[in-house]
Amino acid sequence: MNSRIRAIVPAAGLVLLAAVPLAAALLDQPFYLDLVRRIMIFAIAALSLNLILGYGGMISFGHAAYLGVGAYAVGVLAHYGINDGYLQWALAIGASALVALAIGAISIRTSGVYFIMITLAFTQMLYYLGISIEEYGGDDGMRLQVKSQFPGLIDLNDANAFYYLVLAILVLALFLGQRLVDSRFGMVIRAAKSNEVRTRSIGFSPYPYRLAAFVIAGAVCGLAGALLVNHTAYLTPEFMNWTRSGELMFMVILGGMESIAGPVLGAFALLLLEDALSGWTQHWQLVLGPLLVLSVLFLKRGLAGLVFAKNE
């Protein structure tokens, strides 16, 4: 029974997501297309965070940094008139991997609460860097005049095409993420989380594995950043705001850290809740805050834990 649910739920989710553009067109509500596309982009970011947070046990409170680096990579190239999508997205992935390498190399030497504060502080540093560079709009950020160009392949101005591209990347990320955590590499990461001493004693030094996972997570999140800037058509340092990092963490925890799809569930739950609450009152954070506290206190295995019974 349980295994059947495990197969049915993702398939049903995929069908639902694939049907959104059709439903939005039938209802004449393009807003929903926009909303779900945005949620899926954040789901990719949350999923990448879960690779290090859920599977690696590395509590990174600075994951929004890579969202920002990815967005700025696209924005800065566009600022100089380079609209080639392949180049832009390659730079987004490469630059965020590089930043993750630098931040990870220092932070992973520490652990526990140091790690939390250091990742947060470095992201704040990038945030201030974004604010202080006047050339790229400083505080206000800049508009993305032309979306990333993929001539002959896809036109991102076509809302449906862009939607399906994001969906395809999300599915691909889910698939590759699952392969990664099931691989030998993923097993070392998970082993280092559950018992570092034993992992060392059977001959694995966790540091390089953790750093590699940190860089992969950063690179995937950088791609999400490139998608996000194309989605919003502008970028600001706010992409890297520390509350954004907190939200990403919440998506992971809310959805559940024990499965690769959990953060996707969390992204949908959190952002739909935000959307519903903000339509209801402008002081929605007054409600959201305590809800988050309660979900931490009482929903220990996340939403995925409600859907799937524990299999051990």
């Binding site: 963490m249 919440f250 954070q285």
Partner: peptide
């Protein structure tokens, strides 16, 4: 996470 929720509040 819980204290982050408190900040929003």
């Amino acid at each position: 996470l819980a204290t982050f929720g408190l900040i929003l509040f």
